[in-house]
């Protein structure tokens, strides 16, 4: 299933190539992509991504993108179940996670 990620990046050298490289390297294919003109030092990148195969979790990719220092916000469509560690919620239900990862027990 395709997911759309909306990513706010800082307008810094290499931010876009770093973002695209991470998505590809972590096992996702970018099927379409758009970027807004930079404004006030940041730009919005919208990408549609599909897992290339294997145990790849879109919510893990989202958190890997959030770790980048060139990124200040990521949101997902369809909206993710809230990844709210502080509230005690798990990233997804166990059954959903296992359904997406057949290699897991």
């Amino acid at each position: 299933m395709s997911n759309t990620l909306n990513i706010e990046i800082f307008e810094t050298e290499g931010a876009l190539v770093r973002l695209i490289g991470l998505i590809e390297r972590r096992g996702f294919v970018i099927s379409s992509m758009a970027m807004s003109a930079p404004s006030n030092g940041s730009a919005r990148v919208t990408v549609d991504v599909d897992a290339r195969g294997g145990a790849r979790q879109i919510d893990v990719l989202t958190r890997q993108i959030e770790r980048l220092f060139d990124v200040h916000a990521v949101s997902r469509t369809p909206a993710a179940e809230a990844l709210d560690f502080a509230a005690g919620l798990a990233p997804a239900t166990a059954s959903e996670w296992r359904a997406e990862c057949p290699s897991q027990p």
């Binding site: 145990a55 979790q57 893990v60 958190r63 959030e66 770790r67 990844l83 560690f85 798990a90 996670w97």
Partner: peptide
């Protein structure tokens, strides 16, 4: 590191 949780194994309690 939040990106390590759920990467390769489901966590029943993710902290």
């Amino acid at each position: 590191d939040p990106a390590e949780i759920g990467k390769l194994r489901w966590a029943d309690v993710a902290m």
